[in-house]
Design a binder for these strands. Structure first.
Length: 862
DNA sequence: GCAAGGTC
């Protein structure tokens, strides 16, 4: 029997589609990567009995990047990134092992059916999958078609089955347009980002962002926020005047009337109108009207609307809301949360979904009433052909979900119920009055039936006192007419919800990436989130955008994305050649880039006003090994040391504190050492600022401290303070932290393992001798007489931290509270266990500790 | 260390 492999874009879709096509009779198992499942069943294909295997990828299989050597920022001119630098496709998520997985599942198959999402990205993934699978598939007679594409617009039985019955071919042009998009985004984004970052970080010390990034989506997103800031700044309040009349209605009630002229900007004219009306005793009813109006029930919920409401009503940022929604989805509480569609599929079981909510403690009454009286037909929304709108999939309680998950679930459910509820109907009554020559109006709303606002109370029509019943010609006595002086007020900062709307309108980002772009401009410190989730640009954000305006406004205009997409669509439609469009667009941006580089002084003038040059930033901390003057420690991200005399900058480890280390110097370059520490519960180690940036030995890499330094005799080096191989990670060495007393610590120089030992010892030294059993360096520990935990009246003991029975009581394994960047892929086991002194000749690799010893140690430490 | 797009 032949085998048909079918591939969907994500595991959940593979399951739903397989369920439909196999009519529920399939057997499933997890794939080798643990993320994707394979669903198998038998059926017929092209008139023959076959074995079906339905599986999925997880989004893109591959990602585009430059060849490794072009990723060295200090060696490559960003201008080269536009054409010279070659790119390569890399596995998008190596942890998922997707290529291996697809090859295993694809081997020996005869046909492949591609069920990827029906958009351009999906079409592109089709070809990523084919690139991997075609080489391992069975060879068939020449001419026989083996590759098929299913085109579906919703995950319903009819749609999926008819797609299966009418298989087509993947569209190469659409896939190519995505290839072009990827290459453009990569080349343009990285070139500008690297240039800006290097230029400004080399000049200023207080930018407070480790990256000055640029991108065709994030930059216009920032642009919107700064545009609003500019409007606020340039706003000039104007004084205006308003007439307000008050008439006596029934009993002791009075009515406030609005002036039909609304407002005037000339005080004398307002005064004139006041004079014409203020002596009037009566207000005459000119007309009355009563109109029934409706407030429409909401459209079915899609992602951006959910994010807007989450931000404005629930106070949850888009990134957080999306994460919460994804968790609700994987736990089966809601449907797939990434969709543009606001229209329920024709066969969507609205009543079934509603029934699930019929016993919910919060909305059972509303739901039961809807079910009994019949639900309302949902409004016609937009069908983007991706996924159905976001709906609850089963009932859940506050106690079950808790916190933000519950609040988001509650909103999604209430929204769903509202879409099948009736519109809110209300009566709008208006009475027009004449006071002297001037017209005034008073209007009010009365609810006829609340409809959906019952389940969405925050949408309800506010209760107002009803207007008196009256008719044309009636008169009311005037209580007073007065003139109010007011001022126009500036707009407020952009809310996240408004920003999402703007991004959607201009086609910047997608439902899935909008939260990422907003998050980016926050993390890069271009904007801050203020109360009410309003986005206020920082000085850095403002300077960047104003700089683009000065040099080349197109770089920040919202049209930058849509203009490129227009070109890409030509590729997708087969109207333009992929190479030509790519080359042409790259050429335009290359010119823009060179012009930007040449004109950077224009942006720099703005930077100067807000930021301080490196030489004027930071506090003197440690001495430079070259000129022996103090270098300044710049704490703002990225933290570094700057020698203004030599005009050199030395980067430091991030996320921790830096102190001078006892004015000790590196024997290699005479730089004063500094001590990095990650906090009181974490670890610390000394480092030489020069060596950290310029590794002194061939087996060292950039970013290593003294605890990884292989200097054979320096008293701070791994060679002198290393004890033995880490008990948890492969390549790390446990190193004595000489600054940690009296709560002494031994910490791994690669992972976050920390052993607390010998509390209150007044001296701990690493001895030249090694343990006979495990070859770890012995420790030489001195206690004060009063505090010594040693047996007898001993105050001194030398032994192996792993094997010595006396020391066993005095050691406790922990993990550092915040670890330093681990698993950098350092030199590995070449480093052996540190001490390259004594019995072993320097540099000679040490034998690894035997396996049984390893497990004995692990048991000992736990 | 960079972009934006999928998805886990």
């Amino acid at each position: 029997m032949k085998t048909v492999l079918m591939v969907a874009e994500k595991p959940s879709l593979a399951q739903s589609i397989a369920k439909i096509l196999s009519r529920g009779s399939m057997s499933s198992h997890k794939g080798l990567n643990g993320a994707c499942s394979v669903h198998e069943y038998t059926g017929t294909f092209a008139g023959q009995p076959v074995h079906f295997k339905m599986t999925s990828v997880c989004g893109h299989v591959m990602t585009l990047d430059f060849l490794g050597k072009y990723n060295k920022w200090d060696k490559v001119d960003p201008a080269e990134l536009f054409s010279q630098a070659p790119t390569e496709k890399k596995e998008a998520n190596p942890k998922l092992n997707m290529v291996k997985f697809l090859q295993v599942e694809g081997r020996g198959c005869d046909y492949i059916v591609l069920w990827l999402d029906c958009d351009k990205e999906g079409e592109n993934i089709c070809f990523e999958v084919l690139d991997v699978i075609l080489p391992v598939m069975n060879k068939t007679q020449s001419g026989e078609k083996t590759v098929f594409r299913a085109k579906f617009s919703s995950i319903t039985d009819t749609d999926i089955c008819s797609a299966m019955a009418r298989l087509g071919e993947p569209d190469h042009n659409e896939a190519l347009s995505v290839d072009a998009r990827q290459e453009l985004d990569l080349r343009i984004g990285c070139a500008f980002t690297r240039f800006q970052t290097k230029y400004f970080q080399g000049k200023y010390g207080d930018l407070d962002s480790s990256l000055i990034s640029f991108g065709p989506c994030q930059t216009p997103t920032l642009g919107f926020c700064v545009e609003r800031h500019d409007k606020i700044q340039s706003f000039k309040p104007e004084t205006y005047w308003v007439l307000q009349a008050k008439v006596n209605a029934d009993k002791d009630k009075s009515l406030l009337l609005d002036w039909d002229r609304v407002r005037v900007f000339d005080r004398e004219i307002a005064q004139m109108f006041l004079n014409m009306t203020k002596l009037e005793k009566e207000a005459q009813v000119e007309a009355t009207s009563r109109k029934e109006k409706a407030k429409q029930r909401p459209l079915a919920l899609n992602t951006v609307e959910m994010l807007r409401v989450a931000s404005s009503a629930l106070g949850m940022g888009p990134q957080h809301a999306m994460q919460t929604a994804e968790r609700l989805y994987t736990q089966g509480y809601i449907s797939y949360p990434r969709t543009e569609t606001t229209h329920y599929p024709e066969n969507f079981d609205l009543k079934g979904s509603l029934r699930q909510q019929a016993n919910h403690p919060y909305w059972a009454d509303t739901v039961k009433q809807l079910l009994a009286e019949g639900i309302n037909r949902p409004r016609k929304g937009h069908d983007a052909g991706d996924h159905p709108p976001i709906t609850p999939m089963r009932s859940a309680t506050e106690a079950e979900l808790g916190g933000d998950a519950w609040r988001l679930y509650e909103y999604i459910t209430r929204h769903f119920i509202a879409t099948v509820s009736h519109d809110c109907r209300y009566l709008q009554s208006t009475i027009s009055f004449r006071v002297g020559p001037e017209l005034f109006t008073c209007s009010g709303k009365t609810v006829i039936s609340p409809g959906f606002t019952e389940i969405m109370p925050w949408q309800s029509v506010p209760l107002e006192e009803s207007l008196p019943t009256c008719q044309r010609g009636d008169t009311f006595s005037v209580a007073e007419v007065k003139m109010l002086e007011k001022q126009t007020s500036p707009p407020d900062y952009l809310t996240e919800a408004e920003l999402i709307t703007l991004m959607e309108k201009h086609g910047i980002g997608t439902d899935a990436s909008i939260p990422v772009h907003i998050n980016n401009i926050c993390q890069r410190n271009y904007v801050t989130v203020e109360s009410g989730r309003r986005l206020k640009p920082t000085n850095l954000g403002i300077v960047l955008v104003h700089g683009y305006y000065k040099i080349d406004a197109e770089l920040v205009l919202p049209t930058i994305r849509s203009a490129v997409e227009k070109q890409l669509n030509l590729i997708a439609q087969g109207k333009a050649d992929y190479r030509q469009v790519l080359g042409h667009t790259l050429d335009i941006f290359k010119r823009k880039f060179h012009y930007f580089v040449d004109s950077i002084a224009g942006m720099d003038e703005l930077m100067e006003v807000s930021f301080s040059p490196l030489a004027a930033t930071g506090k003197p901390l440690s001495r430079c090994g070259k000129c022996h003057r103090f270098m300044k420690y710049i704490q703002a991200k990225p933290s570094r040391l700057h020698c203004s005399h030599c005009d050199e900058t030395y980067t430091l480890p991030q996320n921790g504190t830096i102190k001078l280390y006892k004015e000790l110097r590196c024997p290699l370059d005479d730089f004063e050492l500094v001590l990095w520490s990650s906090g009181s519960r974490g670890k610390s180690y000394p480092l030489c600022p020069y060596c950290y940036n310029h590794p002194p030995f061939r087996d060292m890499k950039k970013g290593m401290g003294c605890n990884e330094c292989t200097h054979p005799t320096c008293q701070h080096s791994l060679s002198m303070l290393g004890i033995g191989q880490c008990v948890e990670c492969e390549s790390g060495v446990l190193v004595l932290d000489p600054t940690s007393g009296p709560k002494w610590k031994v910490a791994c120089n690669k992972c976050n393992v920390v052993a607390h030992c010998f509390e209150n010892a007044h001296r701990v030294r690493v001895s030249a001798e090694t343990c006979n059993t495990c070859e770890a360096a012995l420790l030489d520990v001195d206690f004060n007489k009063a505090k010594s935990p040693l047996p007898g009246d001993e105050t001194q003991h030398t032994g192996c931290v792993f094997c010595d029975p006396i020391f066993q009581e005095l050691v406790e394994l922990k993990h550092a509270a915040s670890c330093h960047p681990m698993h950098r892929g350092g030199p590995g086991r070449r480093q052996g266990r540190g001490r390259a002194r004594g019995r072993r000749p320097p540099g000679k690799p040490n034998p690894r500790r035997p396996k049984d010893k390893m497990s004995a140690l692990a048991a000992y430490f736990v």
